[in-house]
Design a protein around this nucleic acid. Structure first.
Lengths: 228, 228
DNA sequence: ACACAAAGTTAGGCTTACCTAATAATATTG
DNA sequence: CAATATTATTAGGTAAGCCTAACTTTGTGT
């Protein structure tokens, strides 16, 4: 079994490797992500390497081994299941679940994860719209894309977001845009790419391209011309 | 707010002070309870004292201050609510909940405790039959007493146990004796005080006095002559 | 291609939470 | 009440996980 203290590193490495298109994680990125200093990270990477969870050479960057990737996906699974549970069963808001899940995922019981996952209805995606890996580490697929890539007239539904910051999530809450909401793309302003959407019962908002980039949606019209 | 690392000490001090009739906790007791060595405990007691959570003098033993007691009860509240949740909602067995609760109670959210308490049906007693303090630290009362104090013919119901060891809890599970089970005291053997009970659908068992001492019950007959 | 910036690395230090071994204080008991 | 056993305390040590400061390596731009 893997050390609890390894988990945050593995999760971070995985997220950086994939989320950033770059695909090679570096020490300073990791340090920044984890809010630590580079020497601290370096020190730990040596241990992770001894544990055969990563390989690291300054040329190649930090790369997860097969085992490392599997463990990472397991950490991510735990995290996302806790988030789902907190949101769906415990009725926490979208913006509250992340930190709490971080703390709870330290509890070390596969069985517990299974139970709370079942209690949450075993969905394939967490409340941020991120896919929940299965036990073997497989990720479900979806056609998520940024709202930004929409064309006028598009009807889509919110699957998640690209960013976890409180400021961003609170902004969405303020606008009353939440998971599974249907958005109608009324107008796109060529000037700066901002997007006017209608949703719920006559709510509407103009979203800056910076925001539209971070809202992940899928089209509900069959042959939508939106860019994926 | 109190330090997470203080919590286990406070809980332990509280339990020792009350559970053991002695009522004054000592360093070696605490060390034994927490599976630490006395110098470690002593060192930490000095800090707890600076934080005004306890007073300690070797003559008087370790005594919780008002604040310390309140914090202890809050830790105990969290712990027992988690145990309740794990048992009632997540369907963990009686013997599994303790360790898991220990890990989960580190998560620091009053709100979360409230939610999972509500999900569990807000009972006054946890799955071991121990009372759950309310937010202000008040304990609900009950007429729990050891099964050992019963008289023949007594009808009682299991409210909890006096001991948390796996061996003991597994033994009860084996016998199929669980929380809220009704026990009929069929015979008491004067020889060694062991007790023959009938329960469920014709289950029956002879319980040694050592075991009967650790099963906590309350009588269901109005004017029972059992010793309290 | 070389100077300067960015990233990585080394060395050494701090704090927390543990430990052991030795000593001191306090109880117990023959 | 002296001898012994128990408990408390002190001193000093270790490992984990973090840090800063200084040095080295590796880009990058003109």
């Amino acid at each position: 079994m893997i050390k609890t203290s390894d988990e945050k590193y593995l999760k971070a490495i995985y997220q950086i490797s994939l989320a950033e298109n770059s695909s090679k994680a570096t020490i300073s990125e990791l340090a920044y992500y984890l809010d630590l200093k580079p020497p601290t990270v370096l020190e730990r990477l040596k241990i992770l390497q001894e544990e055969k969870l990563i390989t690291y050479k300054k040329a190649k960057g930090i790369v997860l081994t097969k085992i490392g990737e599997k463990e990472s996906l397991n950490v991510i699974r735990k995290h996302r299941i806790w988030e789902t549970f907190l949101h769906k069963v415990c009725k926490f808001s979208w913006s509250e679940v992340h930190e709490l899940a971080e703390q709870l995922q330290n509890a070390n019981s596969e069985k517990l994860i299974d139970r709370i996952y079942a209690l949450s209805g075993s969905p394939k995606f967490d409340p941020h719209g991120d896919p929940i890996p299965d036990k073997s580490g497989k990720l479900p697929t979806s056609e998520r894309r940024p709202l930004l890539n929409s064309v006028e007239g598009c009807k889509c539904v919110v699957l998640g977001v690209n960013e976890d910051s409180h400021d961003f999530l609170n902004y969405l809450t303020e606008l009353k845009i939440g998971l599974n909401d249907k958005l109608f793309v009324e107008k796109i302003f060529v000037f700066d790419g901002s997007i006017k959407v209608k949703y719920k019962n006559n709510e509407n908002a103009v979203l800056s391209s910076r925001v539209a980039e971070k809202i992940l949606v899928t089209c509900t019209k069959p042959n939508c011309t939106c860019k994926n």
